Simulated assay, not measured.
Amino acid sequence: MSPIKLAIVGVGKIVRDQHLPAIAGNGNFELIATASRHGTVDGVPAYSSIEAMLEAVPAIDAVSLCMPPQYRYDAARKALDAGKHVFLEKPPGATLSEVQDLIRLADSKGLSLFASWHSRYAPAVEATRAFLAGAAIRSVEIIWKEDVRHWHPNQEWIWQAGGLGVFDPGINALSIMTHILPNPVFLTGAELTFPENRDAPIAASLAFRDQAGLAVNAEFDWRQTGKQTWDIRAETDKGLMVLESGGSKLTIDGREQLNAADDEYPSLYRRFAEIISAGRSDTDLAPLTHVADAFMLGKRRVTEAFHD
Rank of each mutant, 00 (worst) to 15 (best):
G170M: 13
R77L: 08
L96V: 01
I275P: 03
I276L: 12
A204G: 02
N26L: 08
S116M: 12
T34K: 02
D107M: 04
A278K: 10
D231T: 03
P153C: 02
L214T: 04
A94C: 02
W222V: 03
T283Y: 09
I137W: 10
K84T: 01
A62L: 07
S49P: 03
G27F: 07
I202W: 13
A75C: 00
V11L: 13
S267I: 00
A115F: 04
T95Q: 10
D293Y: 07
K145D: 11
P287N: 02
L250M: 06
S175N: 07
H38S: 15
E30H: 14
P195L: 03
A82C: 03
G254N: 14
A130K: 15
L164N: 08
P123C: 01
P123N: 06
P21W: 01
I232V: 15
G134S: 04
D293S: 05
P45M: 13
A204Q: 11
F295N: 07
A135S: 05
L258V: 04
D263S: 09
A24P: 11
E244H: 12
R209T: 11
A56L: 11
A294Q: 10
R255I: 15
V41G: 01
D282S: 00
A52C: 11
Q228M: 12
E244I: 05
L65S: 02
C66N: 06
R72Q: 14
F131P: 10
L132M: 07
Q155Y: 15
L96Q: 03
S175F: 11
R255E: 10
G246I: 08
L285M: 11
E126N: 13
T303R: 06
T251R: 11
D147F: 13
S248F: 15
L54N: 02
E196H: 04
R255K: 13
V125T: 01
Y121D: 00
R138K: 11
D293M: 08
H85D: 02
N197W: 01
L174I: 02
S64A: 12
D74R: 14
T188Q: 02
L132Y: 13
Q155P: 12
P287Q: 11
V242T: 06
I4Q: 09
E191H: 13
N154E: 15
G247P: 10
A79L: 01
S139C: 05
A7F: 06
R300H: 14
T95E: 15
V9K: 00
V302R: 09
A35K: 02
L187Y: 00
H150N: 13
P92L: 09
S139T: 14
Y269T: 00
P182W: 09
P45L: 13
T251H: 06
A278H: 09
S139R: 13
